[in-house]
Structure formats: structure tokens, C-alpha cells
Amino acid sequence: MAQLTYREAVAAAIAQEMERDETVAFIGEDVARAGGVFKATVGLFDKFGPRRVIDTPISEQAILGAAMGAAMTGMRPIAEIMFSDFLAVCWDFVANEMSKSRYMSDGQLKCPLVVRTGNGGGSRFGAQHSQSIENWAMAIPGIKVVAPSTPADVKGLLAASIRDNDPVIFFEHKSLYAVKGEVPEGEYVDTLGTAKVVREGKDATIIALALMVPRAIAAADKLMQEHGIDIEVVDLRTLVPLDMKTISKSVSKTGRLFTVEENPRLCGWGAEIVSIVVDELFWDLDGPAVRITTPHIPLPAADNLEDIAIPSVDRIYNKILEVLK
């Protein structure tokens, strides 16, 4: 095991895959010589050179289109969209092109590519550089959606995404880039579509994703210490494919479900999970399923306002306490 930051794990995964597969190349704005605006791709340019690690113009449509054209014809490109908010200017390629070409061509066209993007709030960047848009991506058939919460998961799931034969939108949380954690050394590949129980418990289940995972764990620890309430936390890790088996097993055991989502309220991923649980596990539930989300607002820049918008440890703790007491 090595101690790596979340951002170092990004570069480690890309390097691992570029070393084993010549068809993997990486494009994006400021990703090569500058090592990325979040410094998540430092060292790749020096190691692999300008043929494989390429600085592009600010042309998000060209970036995703080029990645797609290359993927269709034999490469496994990785494209970076600096902030996930910017996906809106090239959403055609996500919503209409890479997600549909295989189906429309009845399997003739393939599209093995990864779109990496900095997602989520906490940086005081305001409404156009802070969004959590993983739920937008989840709504589109034909793509896979990944959002890791730990450095180890970044390495393993990014490697798996690069090897995957479908287009994958890989959401890296900006507020997690500096977080350190144990990461397996040597070749390490995880499995898409697998959630993980990251804290075992018996009284209630929290389903969380990305930045909300450490906050859910902290809230669970506090509930245990202060009230003896024993919470199980499931890190979803992948929205598509969705690991309902792990979710169902946990909810059946605890009888209570909370989702903690950074996306704004309407049509957040938790709504889909609650809907499935209500459909399939209604009689296992001992009380209402509760969603804890960012309110349905654009995100503010001011730190005090952003902090009360995005679910915090205290908000998660208070809400669960209020519901369970």
C-alpha cells in the first residue's frame, strides 16, 4: 500500500493504463504541460510525451467529439472536461452521440472512452463551477457513471473505466483532491457497478456518493458515540450500473433508508433509489425513506451560504436523529 492523494491516484491510474495499452491517450485543456488545473495529471506529460498527453484548445465539443471519433476507430481515449459544469456546452456528445451511436448502429459502432471531470462544490466557486451533475448523466441510457470517494477507488475505478468498452463519465470530486488514503501498489483494477459497505451498522442505512461518503461516515460515528445509533454507510461508487443488490441487502437488514446527495433536490439519484426500494422492499422498511440533498437552488459563492446548502455532517446527523427518535 502507498499513501496517495485522490489527485495523485488519478495520475497513477492513467499512467498504469497508458503503460499497458498503447491505444490509451489523454486530451484536455491544460492537462499536459501544466498537469491540469487541479494538478491531477502532473507527471503524465513528462512520462508519456506530447503524442499521448495533449493540451487542447478550449473547445469542449471538439474534445469530446475527437475522443469519440478516436474511440470509434480503435483507441481508448481519456478526455478531461475541466469542470463538470462545462459538460453543458458539449452535452450533445454525452446525451446524443456517445450514448446512442452503438444502439442506432445496432452494435456496429463502439465507443470505449472515459470523460473525466471535476465535479461538486465546496470551493466557493459559485453556481457555474460547483455543481454536482452526476444525476444528469445517470438519466441517459448508454453511458456509465462513476463517482469515487477515496484515492484507492479513484485508481481502481478509473483503471476499470479506461478498460471498459462503454463510454464512462468519471466524476472526480474537487473537494476530495487533497484527501490522502491507502492505495494498492502495482497494477490495480476495480469493478464498475459495485457499491461498498464502508461502515457496518444495524439501525439504518445511508447511501452516499463521493464527498457525501466521508460526511455520512462522520455523521454515523457521531450518532453512535452520542446516541448509540448504529448506522450502515454504503458508498455507491457507481451510479450506472447501479448495484441494487448491495443497497437492498443493507436496507433489508436495517429497515431504514437515508440517501445523502450533493445534487439539487429534483430528480437526484436518491429519488431513483428510493423509488426502487419502495417498489421492491416496501415491507422491509420500518419507516419513511428520507433524502438529504442540496436544496433546489443554484449554488452560492459565499462560504457560509455554500456550507449550509450542501449536506454537512451536522445536517446529516440532525436529520437522521430527528427521523429516528
Binding site: 469530446l64 467529439g65 471519433g69 470509434m72 483507441m75
Partner: peptide, 16 residues
């Protein structure tokens, strides 16, 4: 949409 895709196909040809 297909103009950038053609560019990507050309990138692959040049790359490989």
C-alpha cells in the same frame, strides 16, 4: 456533431 468525430478518427489515424 460529426465534424469533431471525423477529427477524432483522423487523430487516431495519425496516432497509430
Amino acid at each position: 456533431a460529426h465534424l469533431p468525430m471525423a477529427v477524432g478518427s483522423a487523430w487516431r489515424a495519425q496516432y497509430l
